[in-house]
Design a protein around this nucleic acid. Structure first.
Length: 854
RNA sequence: GCCCCUGUGGCGGAAUUGGUAGACGCGACAGACUCAAAAUCUGUUUCUCGCAAGGGAGUGCCUGUUCGAGUCAGGCCAGGGGCACCA
């Protein structure tokens, strides 16, 4: 028989699966469901190796669970809104919709080449009105439920492009596209009240047992819950008070100043009457929020001349500064400074000559001599110099201080979060329009449901900078749903993270007239296994968790957590190449030599080999999946993706590795074709007596079936692959002598084919056909190992003398300790190592090991 | 600065969770087949001493717990990731 022709065979089976509609699913209350989902792709143009890895892993899970009898939902869609489409429009004059749908068509075709077990009937694209119309309904429902609100906030404003930029789009204080100096501007924007769910999102993490710890830790830190106290300082000579949040109310007696953010109302008030203060706050704001600016900026303050009264010491007062390191966004935008026990406060106090009074004594320290030098003491200890707190530990002192604050009406215990509400307004075209009408009299009102959807106008221009929606001559003009007067639409669109915060729910009923069909989501949700890159560990996954809670609140779903299981796969890396001028080169431009050096294929110039890095267009270290699939077939690409590296770790893409995978597919095919003449007929019963090599072979295969299943359950695909190699090696050396042997050969091959089905589905189907089956392997149940064959009859165990292996012995499973010991001591090598000395102790661990201590 | 993860052959990685370290693959070397090449097949491949039989060392480093440590504990070192003026 000829070599395996991947191209022909793969095409054939993809057609068969399509024709049989294998992967279309419906709700079926009589069957247990399993929802596998990989993070849907952004249609950037072409699929990359990261997609191949992601969807291969998901497809193995989907096909395996299907074979196990689950009703498997495995859908695909497109995260299709976003800025790159607008950039393409500006650069090449293509309409964003055109660009996006073209890319989707290309990428869909590429994904189909992979042979994924996907229900394509459920395909969705977030840029399609059928999707974002539903999202607008959700927005208005959230508005009514009080989960959405409008607030003025300061944003990064690009004065050249007339747009708001995300922090990541501001580089060294300049817009990434325009290069213009970014201004801070106040804009009214829509916010999702994610902070209302902060505690619930935090607690929910504990229930996510099938999530990586790493992701849970990252989310926990991001939410950043801090317990502490609010203190309301009386301001001398005024009626109002200065509200401050602190996690260390126990250090109040060490307070030597208060400070407010340059954006604090009090700072604004002072600045209004004092040009020097005005100049200072403006200076602070100019520095902006870029990381480097923060890193290098010195602590600076401006004394307002105002003073607050100490809450526990009526005769003492503290100065109020405006300080550049106090954030308006966290707490109340004001702090009290205790220099002795906070490094930042200490730096500030030293600079402005403020007192440094230690109020926490480290354990074992001496109160009389304890002094603070250049380092604040932030550890545990006992309160000193603190009146009624003296002698208490930090925790007890915190409680006592809070009790006293409450008694005096000057504060209370408070919980603060680092998490901030989610601003979703974007001044861009290619996104979901925010369904709100602004009326001069009635204010902002949700668009009534019967007027939804608000569809994006197609006739927009990208020639002038700014938001095309705002510039459209007529689109925004409408009437107020409240009073009927002329009013304007909100011209902002939603952050694209909103689109991806509920798509998994839409997949349950992708064509429903409402955002979702409650019966369908109740059946399918939660996603049993979600798979994607760890780069989404915080934002996307947190937003989706928040969104699900919000959906529950408005009655669309009945559960808080969208993803019961999460798997974060590693990246695909490749060596990097540079020519002598330092220009990056594509792998296909480089020829590697046997001696480890490399040269440029066309010019013959030497090539500098760089370290392996995550594949990226900018470093050109990319390999095109379509080319690989064209050369070797999808099964080979899938197999290589699963080999060697554990899926959670970064993997290295190498030519040698792919070729190895390709050789193995050929080897499997040869193994089958060369065995066909020696097989027992299909359906032959298990022979009554099997012994010798045939029995050994049969045992080995059944053990593989058992172990392979365990590996898949635990996402240990690389070990599962290794087991297939092992059993293929064993099978290649197996010679079926008699009818028993012929039976075992058939059984072994059939089991092998069924195991590789989820990983190399096309090859497996073809082999299944060659083995004489007319049913689809995709519709065949997962094999069950025979428990009697999996259990060992004999074990080999090591014999150690003083912890050093000296021999191995073989004996029946569960042999008695006495028997084991006797056999172990009888080994010549053991006797030699004991050197004539008597055994002081012999440790026998049944079926494991013997250790002789002399 | 704070939090988290990872260190095993030339390389990717296994190791029944405290019990035979290096499965499986890649690469390399030797051989078979071939006019030749490719493909395929058979060996060898942690380091080290030795012709061999056989010994010794070995999972980033140090200390400990244990009959026994890649695995557990403590302390270092190195690499990676996340957060970061968060009061």
């Amino acid at each position: 028989m000829s070599r395996y022709n991947a191209k022909e065979v793969e095409e054939k089976w993809r057609r068969r699966w399509d024709e049989a509609r294998c992967f279309s699913v419906q709700e079926d209350e009589t069957r247990e469901k399993y929802y596998v989902l990989e993070m849907f792709p952004y249609p950037s143009g072409k699929i990359h190796m990261g997609h191949v890895r992601n969807y291969t892993i998901g497809d193995v899970v989907a096909r395996y669970k299907r074979a196990k009898g689950f009703n498997v939902l495995h859908p695909m869609g497109w995260d299709a809104f976003g800025l790159p489409a607008e950039n393409a429009a500006m650069e090449r004059g293509i309409h964003p919709a055109q660009w996006t749908y073209d890319n989707i068509a290309t990428m869909r075709a590429q994904l189909k080449l992979m042979g994924l077990a996907i229900d394509w009937d459920r395909e969705i694209a977030t840029c399609h009105p059928g999707y974002y119309a539903q999202q607008q309904k959700l927005f208005t429902a959230f508005m009514k439920a009080g989960i959405v609100y409008r607030k003025e906030s300061s944003v990064n404003w690009d004065p050249v492009d007339h747009t708001v930029l995300a922090n990541e789009q501001v580089i060294d204080g300049r817009g990434w596209r325009s290069g213009a100096l970014i201004e801070r501007r106040k804009l009214s924007q829509w916010f999702f009240k994610i902070t209302a769910f902060a505690d619930d999102l935090l607690e929910g993490l504990d229930s996510l047992e099938r999530w990586p710890d790493k992701v849970r830790v990252m989310q926990r830190n991001w939410i950043g819950r801090s317990e502490g106290a609010t203190v309301r300082f009386e301001i001398e000579g005024r009626e109002d008070r200065l509200t401050v949040f602190t996690t260390r109310p126990d250090t109040l007696f060490g307070a030597s100043f208060c400070a407010v953010s340059p954006n604090h109302p009090l700072a604004a008030e002072v600045a209004a009457g004092d040009p020097a203060a005005q100049a200072f706050t403006e200076d602070c704001n100019r520095l902006g929020t870029s990381e480097e600016a923060i890193e290098t900026a010195e602590k600076q303050g401006f004394d307002t001349g105002l003073r607050v009264r100490h809450p526990f010491l009526p005769n003492q007062s503290l100065p109020i500064y405006i300080a550049n390191f106090v954030l308006m966004e966290y707490g109340s935008g004001a702090i009290f400074g205790c220099p002795a026990h906070d490094q930042r406060d200490l730096d500030f106090a030293r600079k402005y000559g403020l007192p440094v009074v230690p109020v926490v004594l480290p354990d074992g320290g001496d109160a009389a001599s304890f002094e603070i030098g250049t380092e604040a003491y932030t550890g545990d200890g006992t309160a000193i110099n603190s009146d009624f707190l003296d002698g208490l530990g930090v925790e007890a002192a915190k409680r006592a201080a809070i009790d006293r604050l409450v008694e005096a009406g000057q504060g209370e215990s408070t919980i603060q979060y680092r998490l901030r509400d989610w601003g979703i307004s974007r001044q861009r075209y290619w996104g979901c329009p925010i369904p709100v009408i602004h009326c001069p009299d009635c204010g902002p009102l949700p668009v009534p449901e019967d007027q939804l959807p608000i569809v994006l106008p197609e006739d927009v221009t990208f020639e002038t900078p700014g938001n095309p929606l705002a510039q459209h001559p007529t689109w925004k003009q409408t009437t107020c749903p409240g009073c009927g007067a002329a009013a304007e639409r909100d011209t902002d669109t939603m952050d694209t993270f909103v689109d991806s915060s509920w798509y998994f729910a839409r997949f349950c009923s992708p064509r429903a007239e409402d955002p979702m069909d409650r019966k369908a989501v109740d059946y399918w949700l939660p996603v049993d296994q979600y798979i994607g890159g760890v780069e989404h560990a915080i934002l996307h996954l947190l937003y989706a968790r928040f969104f699900t809670r919000a959906l529950a609140k408005v009655g669309h779903v009945g559960l808080p957590e969208p993803f019961a299981g999460l798997f974060t796969q590693g990246m695909v890396c490749h060596e990097t190449y540079k020519d002598p001028d330092g220009k990056w080169l594509f792998p296909e431009e480089v020829e590697k030599r046997a001696d480890g050096t490399a040269q440029h294929l066309e010019t013959g110039q030497p090539v500098v080999l760089g370290r392996s890095e995550s594949m990226s267009k900018s470093k050109r270290n990319v390999v095109d999946p379509q080319a690989i699939i064209g050369t070797y077939g999808a099964d080979t690409a899938r197999w290589f993706m699963l080999s060697d590296s554990p899926p959670e770790r970064d993997m290295e893409w190498t030519d040698a590795g792919v070729e190895g995978a390709w050789r193995f597919t050929q080897r499997l095919w040869r193994l089958l074709t060369e065995s066909l003449d020696a097989l027992a007929p299909k359906g032959t019963a298990v022979p009554e007596a099997l012994d010798g090599p045939a029995l050994e072979m049969r045992r080995a295969v059944h053990k593989t079936v058992q172990a392979f299943g365990d590996d898949l359950e635990k996402f240990r695909f690389n070990r599962a692959v290794a087991r297939i190699h092992e059993i293929a090696n064993t099978l290649a050396g197996f010679k079926p002598g008699d009818d028993g042997g012929r039976f075992v050969l058939r059984e072994s091959l059939e089991l092998l084919v069924r195991l590789i089905g989820p990983m190399m589905p096309h090859l497996a189907e073809e082999m299944w056909l060659q083995l004489g089956h007319d049913s689809l392997l995709a519709e065949t149940a997962w094999p069950q190992a025979d428990a009697a064959l999996v259990a060992d009859e004999h074990v080999t165990l090591a014999v150690q003398v003083n912890g050093k292996k000296r021999a191995t012995i073989s004996l029946p499973v569960d042999a008695s300790e006495a028997e084991t010991q006797e056999l172990a001591l009888a080994e010549p090598a053991v006797q030699k190592a004991m050197d004539g000395k008597p055994a002081r102790k012999v440790i026998v661990v049944k079926n494991r090991i013997v250790n002789v201590v002399v």
